[in-house]
């Protein structure tokens, strides 16, 4: 490649498998085009590693267009790197200068164990969703459009919260490794829509409980999650989560075993 290629030094977390000891290893990344995405830069480094018979750096990725939530690493101490509201796959190398040193580490949380190098197991998020991040939808023929009235304000808030791609940057950036922003985004997304009402308070209790079971930390409102979120989810969702949790805890009651119609 011609002039304009970047020469960088990478400090990358290498770990051969789950529960193995890992360490930071330094790699040169030479002649990197500023047009490359961050993941393409890693691909280029990996080609070199493979050619020289070394184990390539494992990292998660899928869509590479910022919508699937698969990618995500700590880049120089910031989740998804220095660019706001941008996933690692959408981060471009023009953000960096020739000669830069780049620290690349996996998300760090007890609830996100490292599988290999930069790949972590985010199954804990799936289990939080399984606990209550769904609605029980009636099947059958479709309803008329607009048969469920919803205010524009609620629709906007729900859609903003629904932008969450579950990448885990909020956990990674949080000093407490808390999953509050993720959980709150789901609770807000469903809890603001008419379809989410029947299970709204059960959902808040179940998802918050699961979040604790998984071993995530609590929220101290540092604000780091909101800053790290590639989708710009607001900590206002955490206000919603806590409000629903308070109502849920105050109104919780046993399900009836025998019911009139049963």
């Amino acid at each position: 490649m011609s002039a304009g290629g970047l020469n960088l030094t990478l400090h990358v977390w290498r770990q051969s498998g789950p529960n193995k000891a890992g360490k930071i290893v330094d790699y040169p990344a030479t002649n990197i085009s500023p047009e490359m995405s961050f993941l393409e830069m890693l691909d280029t480094v990996n080609e070199g590693l493979i050619t020289s018979g070394q184990d390539p750096i494992a990292f998660d990725h899928d869509c590479r267009e910022g919508i699937c939530g698969s990618c995500g690493v700590m880049i120089n101490g910031a989740a998804h790197g220095p660019m706001k509201q941008t996933t690692a796959c959408q981060l471009h190398m023009r953000t960096f200068k020739n000669g830069d040193e780049i620290w690349i580490e996996p998300w760090r949380a007890g609830a996100f164990p490292v599988i290999k190098d930069l790949v972590v197991d985010r199954g804990a998020f799936d289990r939080i969703i399984q606990a209550g991040g769904f609605i029980s939808a009636p099947t059958g023929s479709p309803q008329d459009a607009n048969s469920l009235p919803i205010s524009k304000l609620d629709a906007d808030d729900a859609m903003d919260a629904a932008a969450c791609i579950g990448c885990g940057a909020c956990v990674a950036a949080c000093p407490n490794a808390s999953a509050s922003l993720f959980t709150a985004a789901k609770i807000t997304h469903l809890g603001r829509l008419p379809q989410g009402q029947p299970e709204r308070y059960r959902r808040a209790l179940a998802m918050v409980t699961q979040m604790d079971i998984e071993g995530f930390g609590g929220c101290t409102l540092f604000g780091e999650c909101q800053e790290a979120c590639p989708k710009g989810i607001s900590i206002d969702t955490i206000v919603q989560m806590n409000r629903d949790y308070i109502v849920a805890a105050a109104s919780e009651r046993e399900e009836k075993v025998e019911m009139g119609a049963g």
């Binding site: 930071i24 101490g77 910031a78 620290w103 000093p175 808390s178 071993g215 930390g217 604000g223």
Partner: peptide, 16 residues
């Protein structure tokens, strides 16, 4: 909160 991140980052920069 401390137990939730058993392995620390080599580099984490608080943003806000």
């Amino acid at each position: 909160n401390k137990a939730a991140r058993p392995e620390p980052y080599a580099k984490r920069v608080p943003q806000v």
